[in-house]
Design a protein around this nucleic acid. Structure first.
Length: 500
RNA sequence: GCGCCCUUAGCUCAGUCGGUAGAGCACCGGCCUUUUAAGCCGUGGGUCCUGGGUUCGAGUCCCAGAGGGCGCACCA
């Protein structure tokens, strides 16, 4: 990208900081020459450890803390600064009789807001009660040449927050907290699965046939092989191949890509956890899902079982609510089974709901459900026994072959999980692939082409298996109370800035 | 892809009916020995997103474009 031209004011702000950098260098304190700093304490650790230190007193112990200078004040013969590290904030207290007159002056003249600082000193509490590091020695460990956003408002401009996430993270601690929590959630999920003997694997991202879901793939090309490839839209078909191979409990937390629109609930690349357990049915999977989610809710709420999400409170007490797919449509829409499972009446209902000419029975039924039922599903709710025509990879119910052993878990009107007893009958699977191939030929760009090798795998024999997909980004949205998926993805897709 | 809204100083934002571009913070200079966004005084700082148009005159009105937000469509 071309360097954007700077306004006169901005150039002046940067020049002032460059002068301070030059001054530090001439003092033999080149910030960029330093390669290490021995940190002995984190800010929050000190805050915790010295809660009882009375105002006006100090302790003999020395600590070394490093972080970014976020506020500077009291520019007399005394100086205060707020130093933020990853854990939190500690005030720096510089007095000329402790740090030295020359060093204090240099601090006041050459240290700018935003600089990275390593400090050493004793711990003290000021007269006004603020825990502080009484600085004896400081080093500028990295110079901030660019001026930081407003100290009070922080960085507000949404576009810049996403494009320059480093700034967002540096000045908005609550944003950093969300992403640190995202990391903890995923780590905890891995521990939870590890404890239950699940094996984590990685399957291909670049694939020939993008199956396992209905979505448009991103297309790419391998030069050496002269091969057109797609980015995966799901991990499902590869993970089930592994179950065939004898990995009985397997999962992948991976990025998947769907070439669709962008809004507060969708990003073109997102993270999905898909998991398969041999010898489980969707019943065991539903129970497992409750345990996992309740566990994560307890983690983020210190043992609680509800989540504040926007204006609402979500109840994660087990067992979660359950409703059968067809019962939900009858309850909320008054529709009978035959109205939904036959094409013509389903299309008529869809049209009566204002859905513009549904291209297929599948689409019509999906839209009816979305319009009629989804708005009611606030607390975590399992929607059970979804029709086979919406479920090309799920096993039919033995007592009702038009339905499958499949559930979707809805939370706050969003689909959070999709799970089923996996279809392991190769002949039935072949038939459904052929059905999708007909849809594809009829112009449905989202219907995947058949993956014949997957059929070959099923012919080797797959045990009865249950699988689930959980959208990690949405899960993190609930657990961190974020209303936009972009606020749980570090670098959400943005258009590039063209030359101005 | 469609509709509505937004884009003004480094940051956060005002800008009336079309009449010479504003504030707070930051920066810079000076003074100050306990600050918490936050002592006091002073100086400087603008591609009003871009390009056209209307007008004696456009930040303001019109057209086109760029980027963003929200909603719809698609999807999870």
């Amino acid at each position: 990208m071309e360097t954007l031209e700077l306004g006169a004011r901005e150039a002046e702000l940067i020049a002032a900081r460059r002068e301070n950098l030059a001054a530090l260098r001439s003092m033999g304190a080149d910030p960029y020459a330093i390669t290490r700093f021995n940190v002995t304490a984190k800010a929050s650790e000190l805050q915790r450890r010295f809660t009882d230190l009375p105002a006006g007193e100090h302790r003999a112990e020395h600590f070394a803390v490093a972080g970014r200078v976020m506020l500077l004040r009291g520019q007399g013969n005394i100086a205060f600064a707020d130093l933020w590290d990853e854990s939190g904030k500690i005030q720096l207290f510089l007095k000329s009789d402790v740090v030295g007159k020359v060093r204090l002056k240099a601090f006041q003249r050459y240290v700018d807001r935003g600089d990275l600082l390593g400090v050493q000193g004793r711990i003290a509490r000021t007269k006004l009660g603020e825990l502080s590091l009484l600085v004896e020695q400081y080093d500028v460990l990295g110079k901030a040449l660019a001026p930081l956003p407003d100290k009070w408002h922080g960085l507000v401009d949404v576009e810049r927050r996403y494009r320059q996430r480093y700034l967002d993270l540096a000045v908005n601690p609550e944003v950093r907290d969300v992403f640190l929590m995202r990391s903890r959630i995923i780590a905890e999920m891995r521990r939870f699965l590890e404890a239950r003997n699940f094996v984590e694997v990685e399957t291909p991202v670049l694939i020939n046939i993008a199956g396992g879901a209905t979505a448009r793939p991103f297309q790419t090309h391998h030069n050496a092989l002269g091969l057109d490839l797609n980015l995966r839209i799901a991990t499902e078909l590869y993970l089930k191949r592994l179950v065939v191979g004898g990995i009985e409990r397997v999962y992948e937390i991976g990025r998947i890509f769907r070439n669709e629109g962008i809004d507060t609930k969708h990003n073109p690349e997102f993270t999905m956890m898909e998991l398969y357990a041999a010898y489980w049915s969707y019943e065991e999977m539903a129970q497992f899902t409750e345990e996992l989610l309740a566990h994560l809710v307890a983690m983020v709420t210190d043992g609680g079982n509800t989540l504040a999400y926007g204006e609402r409170t979500l109840d994660f007490r087990r067992p979660f609510k359950r409703i059968k797919y067809l019962d939900a449509l009858r309850e909320y829409g008054g529709y009978a089974r035959a109205d939904l499972l036959d094409v013509e009446p389903a299309v008529r209902i869809a049209e009566s709901l204002g859905i513009p000419k549904p291209p297929s029975h599948t689409h019509a039924l999906d839209k009816i459900f979305e319009t009629v039922v989804e708005p009611h599903l606030v607390d975590p709710t399992f929607v059970m026994d979804i029709p086979v025509l919406l479920s090309p990879l799920a096993k039919r119910r033995a007592d009702d072959p038009q339905l499958t052993e499949r559930f979707e878990l809805f939370i706050a009107n969003m689909e959070a999980c999709n799970a089923f007893s996996e279809l392991n009958d190769p002949d039935d699977q072949r038939g459904r692939f052929e059905e999708q191939a007909r849809d594809r030929d009829a112009g449905d760009a989202e219907a995947p082409p058949p993956d014949w090798d997957f059929i070959a795998a099923l012919e080797v024999g797959m045990p009865p298996t249950a699988g689930i997909g959980i959208g990690i980004d949405r899960l993190v949205m609930y657990l961190t109370n974020q209303q936009s998926i972009r606020d749980v993805i570090l670098f959400p897709l943005q258009r590039p800035i063209t030359e101005r």
